[in-house]
């Protein structure tokens, strides 16, 4: 069979490979190379070594480290809130309450709406609310920008995590809960000592999904705050975008590409950590 299949390789893998080379491999390699160069257009590049990387940490007027701090704070808060919210909703929806299906359908819906649209929806709501209580609007108010992004992400992602938690909770065997009940465990103890450990694999998946979503967040950020005021609410992806396309000049594109490489390394390391921990859990169970 292998031999026969091998002869057909141009049909089976060539289309995907060609597109993959155009859409990923070549741009990735070129991006890596350009992060060591200074250029305005792609035809005229000058090799400058690690200059861009040094600049990214020492000279840059839109420091990536500021965005990194904002991103990490945002990620921590939203991971906790989204997962707690999703888990509580999943618990409420696995009790056989009437209308469970409708609620589940409803809570999942925001996931299908794109980031740009979501950003504008919440921009209207949050600015309406801020002017109601007499505070500066979100474009001038970094605190509101931060919490606005958190609320938006909770609204969008809670339903997704809820779906994963529901699947996890439904696979906890009835007998275990029954046994805990007979042993005199209260509901709370059953939850903490039986249900939570049993859905640990769902928790790992959800935590890392929210983590990588928070780190890669761009559309929502662009539509809700545009990083204003003065880049204070720009997350890493938006920061890189602004460095690339925000100004014209010799230095910016190379600097942006170097920042993108740093960003890429951070995301890859986080994702590898995810893979390793998930693997470990799989072995344990």
């Amino acid at each position: 069979m292998e031999k026969a299949l091998k002869r057909y390789w141009p049909i089976f893998i060539l289309p995907t490979l060609a597109a993959f080379a155009i859409g990923f491999i070549y741009p990735f390699a070129q991006g890596l190379y350009l992060s060591f160069c200074q250029f305005r257009t792609i035809d005229k590049v000058k090799w400058v070594g690690f200059d861009n990387y040094v600049k990214a940490f020492t000279w840059d007027p839109q420091p990536l480290t500021d965005s990194m701090k904002f991103t990490v704070a945002f990620a921590l808060v939203s991971i906790v809130l989204i997962n707690l919210g999703g888990f509580v909703l999943a618990l409420a929806l696995t009790r056989g309450v009437k209308g469970t299906n409708i609620f589940r359908t409803l809570f999942f819906m925001p996931n299908l709406i794109g980031g740009i649209v979501l950003g504008y929806i919440w921009n209207v709501l949050i600015n309406g609310f801020l002017s109601l209580i007499g505070k500066p609007l979100i474009e001038l108010n970094p605190t509101a920008g931060f919490w606005g992004l958190v609320v938006l992400m909770c609204w969008q992602q809670m339903g997704y995590m809820m779906i994963i938690y529901i699947a996890g909770l439904q696979s906890v065997p009835e007998e275990l809960i029954e046994a805990a009940k007979i042993d005199g465990a209260t509901k709370w103890i059953t939850l903490i000592k039986v249900k939570v450990p049993m859905v640990m694999s769902s928790i790992t998946i959800c935590v890392f999904l929210t983590l990588s979503n928070s780190f890669k967040l761009f559309d929502q950020n662009l539509a809700l705050t545009r990083g204003e005021p003065g880049d204070q609410t720009a997350m890493m992806a938006l920061n890189i975008y602004n460095t690339f396309y925000g100004r014209s000049g010799q230095v910016w594109k190379g600097l942006g590409q170097a920042k993108a490489v740093i960003f890429c390394i951070i995301v890859v390391v986080l994702s590898l950590a995810q893979l390793l921990t998930t693997r470990k859990r799989e072995v344990q169970q």
Binding site: F24, P27, Q30, G31, I42, S212, K216, F218, Y241, A260
Partner: peptide, 17 residues
């Protein structure tokens, strides 16, 4: 690997390609 890489890494070169 390509699944993990953020789009910002390739956005400029991809659009030029």
């Amino acid at each position: 690997f390509s699944m993990i890489v953020p789009f910002q890494m390739v956005m400029f070169t991809l659009s030029k390609t």
